[in-house]
């Protein structure tokens, strides 16, 4: 994708853990006006004790990124041109996902909206204090995000258009806000399932 390319769809991907339910993921595709295009969420993925032992420290990254992230992206009818996540584990997508990804370090509290709606669902994974290689950083309107250019040969080019896309989006919208929407929708899904049960 060239620097002059205009980004039309952004994907906001996150995972969260409901007590007793397991890990759930959600993907919200927005246009540049922050209007929803598609929403996908998973049923809870429960991890067994055996799986937890075998995968060890890599378990959450595997479930959130390889299993949930992969499944959500497979279902998307529109391929997002840029993926954003505020969940570090979800950032560990399979290698064959070539959509550029940006990690938006969550701030605490998650957001005003989350507070209002009592959505106490912090991102699943704790991010490292600094971006490991090959993650790079971008600062957009006082918010630092970490980005991974998929193709190192065109890393500089990717960096430019990602920066342009995020600058455009954040001119009117909050970069962290769509994650609240995803989490609220997942919470609604859980509540609906609980009521039905």
């Amino acid at each position: 994708m060239s620097a002059g390319h205009r980004v039309e769809q952004l994907g906001f991907l996150t995972c969260t853990e409901f007590d007793g339910w397991g890990l759930c993921g959600g993907l919200l595709l927005l246009n540049t006006l922050a209007r929803p295009l598609e929403f996908h969420c998973t049923l809870p993925v429960k991890v067994s004790r055996t799986q937890a032992i075998l995968y060890g420290a890599s378990l959450r990254a595997h479930v959130c990124g390889q299993v949930i992230g992969r499944a959500l992206l497979d279902k998307a009818k529109t391929v997002p041109q840029l993926l954003l996540t505020d969940c570090w584990d979800t950032a560990q997508l399979p290698d064959n996902v070539d959509t550029p990804m940006v990690f938006v370090p969550p701030t605490a509290p998650a957001s005003a909206a989350a507070e209002v709606d009592s959505v106490d669902l912090p991102p699943v994974g704790m991010a490292p204090a600094a971006p490991p290689m090959p993650w790079d950083t971008l600062t957009i309107r006082d918010q630092t995000v970490w980005l991974l250019a998929p193709d190192t040969n065109s890393a500089a080019d990717s960096r430019r258009w990602i920066e342009a896309a995020l600058t455009q989006f954040t001119a009117r919208h909050d970069l962290a806000e769509p994650f609240d929407r995803v989490r609220q929708a997942m919470t609604e899904a859980r509540d609906a399932a609980l009521r039905a049960a």
Binding site: L37, H40, K46, L54, V67, K75
Partner: peptide, 19 residues
């Protein structure tokens, strides 16, 4: 034998009509 393979995630999808 222990089943170490992760279950696949079942996905619910909703596509918004463009207003």
């Amino acid at each position: 034998s222990l089943a170490g393979r992760m279950p696949t995630a079942r996905v619910f999808s909703h596509v918004f009509p463009e207003s």
